[in-house]
Amino acid sequence: MNKVSDLVLEVVRELGSDQENKALVNADLETPLFGRNLDSMGIVFLVTDLEARISEEWDLAITLADERAMSQNTSPFRSVKTLTQYTQTLLDEAKTSA
């Protein structure tokens, strides 16, 4: 586990608590997201919460929801693991260009 996966898991679990979704409250890296535990409205909540937390934590602005996210071979919103990987990629890029 690294800092990004910890943060993603924290945000997913908090959202699970808000949505009264046990699978998300007890989420681990393999927990599915879109299509199983979240609809597209839930993805808005997850993305906006995660972007805000990343901004607080690293003072970096990243965009998790855009055409690029949709063009990935594996959707970032498939599971906690894919979201963590995509978030890490965007953060690494943002740190490099900062």
Binding site: G35, S40, M41, I43, M70, S75, F77
Partner: peptide, 16 residues
């Protein structure tokens, strides 16, 4: 309102 048969994860983002 959403097309609930849509499987697009960004549907709510795009509609709003």
């Amino acid at each position: 309102f959403s097309n609930l048969e849509s499987t697009h994860p960004m549907a709510a983002f795009i509609l709003e």
